[in-house]
Design a protein around this nucleic acid. Structure first.
Lengths: 243, 243
DNA sequence: AGGATGCAGATTGTTGACAATCATCGTCGG
DNA sequence: CCGACGATGATTGTCAACAATCTGCATCCT
């Protein structure tokens, strides 16, 4: 018997390293806008604030840089990036394409579907929408999408998709994007998508997926007072349209 | 006057940090098979061999882990990954999809094409094939592909594409994949593709791109004595077929 | 004999101090 | 007055030593 037997949960996996703790803290700070875009992240103040030395800080910053949550300039340190409308378009196009790919793989032939995991996320989303919690609903929406991609058995696609999801969180958090009045739409989209998946209708699922992404990227562009360049969007994503 | 004034090239950009030097050395060692798949990379011997401390070694390993060139297990260190046939399929599918996306963006409307850069890479490939240098030819092929994606103005797509290219180099280097007798085919593919791009024929360019990728992934699977699952491949990549 | 247990060596995770680099600002020369 | 130059402080890059963790083996108990 291990001596850690007492701790009821957290038993799975080794203790999180300081690097992970720092990375989680920074992710939250950036996504929630506590660190403004363009702001410089200095290693020493951060290490004092979090109570660790600069080593883990540096490793965490390199990790976040890999996911695009900070930008590292040699000998200048890390800064919080300022996403542009072109970034929004690119990130959504990549997520749309990677998700389509995962959906097709997931529903190929008689592969087993992760229906249980999907229904769990759907229920979470449903609760959040019922309570009118916009932030939790957005998390639920993203979590459902992630569950689809994770279930396809394509680890690199899933990793990349989740990395891009952090960018979406930055957009929402730092550009002040709102969707309080679109929670029912969100739930409806996921419900319909879930039905198409559970009912094994690959074509309909992929179409719903793509429509959903176009709808949201268009809405975000509107909120940012940027023109939505539909020809460009189609060029970036028509990869999956079937006709 | 800086003391580095002597070095004729390398003058552009700041001096490469030790982390970059280590990362480059490791990339080469892994890609060329000097480090066998499954082999453990120990920090201290490596630091002594390269003459730097463990700090930059660790940062370089984290960097490579991000690109999938090593796998890091907490408290166990880094090991060289052993790619499977499923990995080959996934990597090629992603590269095919990302490249299609970049091609469509590149040739959209009246955007300016990076013809000069493409022709430079084409010439390099041509020289390598003429001299029958298989390794250089492969580099030239990959460099031309990279130039296409880099020219599309989609930085995340380009970054991801180049990261996946390292995986291709691992396949070639560690699985002993050969293509000595396919150099003319390689050159022909790129020439035809180049013609379609320079001639502004988006549809043909994208078709050639996809055919090229299917041809090579099929060839690699054959060499690995693995069945090429065409339905799966189509599901992963039909995103871009237009009909 | 078989399996759990604890020790020893090796390796990674972390730390604080030192060195190199960069930005800022005041000064000097034109 | 304006621009180049140089000192100065702040910040990142690097290093070597310390602490925590893991693996393998010998030992001990049943």
């Amino acid at each position: 018997m291990s001596t850690v037997e007492r701790l009821p949960f957290r038993s799975r996996g080794p203790a999180p390293s300081n690097t992970e703790v720092v990375a989680d803290a920074l992710r939250e700070a950036i996504v929630k806008g506590w660190l403004a875009p363009g702001e410089r992240i200095k290693e020493i103040p951060l290490s004092e604030q979090l109570g660790v030395s600069r080593g883990p800080i540096r490793e965490a910053l390199r990790l976040l840089a890999h996911d695009g949550l900070v930008t590292i300039i040699p000998n200048r340190g890390a800064i919080v990036p300022t996403p542009t409308s072109a970034d929004v378009l690119e990130v959504y196009a990549m997520r749309s394409a990677l998700g389509s790919l995962a959906l097709r793989k997931l529903m190929l032939g008689d592969a087993q579907l992760p229906v249980a995991a999907l229904e769990r996320e759907l229920a979470r989303l449903q609760r959040a929408v019922a309570r009118n919690k916009a932030s939790q609903a957005a998390d639920g929406d993203l979590a459902y999408q992630s569950a689809i991609v994770a279930g396809a058995g394509l680890p690199r696609v899933a990793r990349q998709f989740d990395q891009l999801t952090w960018q979406v969180r930055i957009f929402i958090g730092t550009r002040g994007l709102r969707f309080d009045d679109k929670l029912p739409l969100m739930l409806g989209e996921i419900r319909e998508l879930h039905g198409a998946i559970a009912g094994r209708e690959p074509g309909r699922a992929e179409r719903l997926w793509r429509e959903k992404f176009e709808r949201w990227v268009r809405d975000f562009m509107d909120q940012m007072a940027e023109e939505f360049d539909r020809p460009l969007w189609v060029a970036l994503t028509n990869g999956g349209l079937h006709g």
